[in-house]
């Protein structure tokens, strides 16, 4: 039927990283971190029509200690920021963060005293998801992209090296204001 039928002698070679990534990406447990409008769309994604269960992710964990993905769904206020960080710290490693919606990603239209201008001031973000609020399809796309990222993540020394490379690249990167071209 599938791939396993065609294997020459019943086994398949892969790397430990790929195997671990494959296992990890298939069982991501999101923590419920609904804040505002996006939380409603997040719930919709889990409900009937969009059915997040297709990707093995419909079980939102109430406790951060059982979760490894935080979907920050909505605007983060200055009062909520310490709470958010504490919840993040309570999650076991490895963990990922999706910043859902413009408010969580950059403060969005609420450029004022009350809102943290981007949740990446508080926690490291893996996927920024635009939209106000993003459609459920967009959230699913973000989740699939995150799956891809988890699948291809490195382990051990390789992970350290990848992190170093990413940091160097980020330090060398051109600041947004010095970029030219279309606004995208």
């Amino acid at each position: 039927m599938g791939l396993e039928e065609k294997l020459p002698s019943g086994f398949l070679l892969t790397t430990v990283e790929q195997a671990a990534g494959w296992v990890r990406k298939a069982s991501v447990f999101p923590a419920t971190f609904g804040l505002a409008c996006c939380a409603i769309e997040m719930m919709t994604t889990g409900a009937g029509r969009y059915d997040l269960a297709r990707f093995g992710m419909e079980v939102f964990r109430g406790s951060p200690r059982q979760a490894d993905l935080m979907i920050v769904a909505g605007r983060v206020s200055q009062k909520m920021a310490p709470v958010l960080r504490q919840v993040y710290d309570q999650m076991p490693n490895p963990k990922w963060v999706i910043s859902m919606g413009v408010c969580a990603s950059s403060g969005g239209m609420f450029n004022n005293y009350a809102i943290v201008q981007g949740v990446d001031h508080i926690v490291p973000v893996d996927i920024y998801l635009p939209g106000c609020p993003p459609r459920p399809e967009m959230l699913m796309d973000a989740i699939l992209k995150l799956h891809h990222k988890i699948q291809n993540s490195k382990l051990g020394v390789n992970a350290e090296e990848a992190a170093r490379e990413a940091e160097e690249a980020a330090l060398k990167a051109l600041p947004t204001i010095e970029m030219k071209g279309l606004l995208r």
């Binding site: 804040l35 505002a36 909505g74 605007r75 206020s77 009062k79 909520m80 709470v83 239209m109 009350a114």
Partner: peptide
């Protein structure tokens, strides 16, 4: 309460 205070009235 106040964990979602957005300052909309000021904006």
């Amino acid at each position: 309460i106040g964990y979602l205070h957005t300052g909309i009235e000021k904006n």
